[in-house]
Design a protein around this nucleic acid. Structure first.
Lengths: 130, 130, 130, 130
DNA sequence: GTGGTCTAGACCACT
DNA sequence: GTGGTCTAGACCACA
């Protein structure tokens, strides 16, 4: 599904969180879709189940997962994302500082606008969902 | 000069680093300008001098500061910063994921383009650098 | 009859228990009324019959249901419920902490009194019971 | 500081969370006050530090604590409580069902109103804070 | 010293 | 089988 970098400064469970977020944001994982069980994920990534558990719990807190004991863990629907207004504020600030640093390091305006297009942003909202 | 938020999850030394970077990028601190001594900075922010020490060392490593024994620390000319191409790659990736998450959370295309303008990017300031 | 929220942190069988309790307390289900069979309930809610089984057993233990072999389960007359004094103690404690937290989170006195009225408490319905 | 019931159905870390919440709501713990370190708390309650850690993390997520690595954990200010509007909705629903069940079990109107007064609610907001 | 992460392995309740 | 809790003990980074 994805890879974990054990040597990274980022905590393993955070990497798992971020990877799942990416997959959900990219639409690879759909709402109410089942994700691998804690144990399966642990086996696949060869890391401790507790670490996966922690990641799943975190994803639940951030509104990306919901877990049903005995059934499994599932992708949540984005509308229910908790505290997203606060998160948006954070992201905007991050956006600002990222662009500023890019410019500072000599990245041209054109290059950044090109990045913008690559995100699919200029194509309008996703037309086909299925 | 700036404020530290103890309640933030970000480490204190990292906040110091980021704040200095912001000031340099924004042009508030000019190349070869002297920055406050470790002890003064620690007093002003009422945090441990070791923490400031670590921040300054980090800023040196990243090419934003240079220090002269017995004189203090100074703002560097980061165009000369080593490894900035690697940093640019990182920033582009960060840019991509930030925009994607913003869109996912319902932020409109217009809103993001507005953010873009607010960074001063659309004023063509970068042209001279290219 | 009612809905189960899989996304809730509450166990499914507990949701079933609570929903039945609500219906009985609200008077929707009358004493000695027959409730759906375990299998029917399971089909209607599309959940595992074992889960319904567990919920019904729990409702029996708490004095809300009684079951007759071969006939099914029926609504009990909970005034006869055993251990209700202990339950009342629990509920009072829960009441106290709930009100305290509401106040702490900025809920005004008026708002809470309004809630009180909405429960029908102020209509003196309880007088006949005393 | 408080006691833990190892035999309770409630998870230990949840008990810790609830106890701290009570203390903060009651005003025993003031904003920005330092709470015992994870290790000290673990020693005092003779439970595993990881369990305390989990409780503190939970309190942080719910906006009651903030932690500074290397410094300790502190009581947060209630205004910053995240997602409190959602929590208020939950509490109101809990209030409703609690009162309904109390009435159902034969608790008189007077008794419930007396409970209300005991919470200090009828005295208006706290006059003396110090 | 502090919080934070990770592992290994046991145990429990729910479906 | 699933998620969830807990322990014991090691290790790291920050202040």
């Amino acid at each position: 599904m994805f890879q974990i970098d054990l040597k990274s400064r980022k905590a393993i469970y955070e990497q798992v969180v971020d990877n799942f977020k990416e997959l959900i944001i990219a639409g690879v994982l759909k709402p109410d879709e089942k994700v691998p069980s804690v144990r399966d994920m642990a086996k696949e990534l060869t890391i401790n189940p507790n670490t996966i558990q922690k990641a799943y719990r975190e994803l639940e807190n951030r509104g990306y997962f919901y877990s049903v004991s005995g059934l499994g863990s599932f992708v949540s629907v984005p509308a229910e994302a908790a505290g997203s207004s606060h998160r948006i504020k954070e992201l905007k600030e991050l956006f600002r500082s990222t662009v500023n640093e890019l410019v500072f390091l000599g990245c041209s305006k054109e290059e950044i606008l090109k990045l913008m297009e690559e995100t699919g942003l200029s194509k309008g909202k996703v037309d086909e969902n299925d």
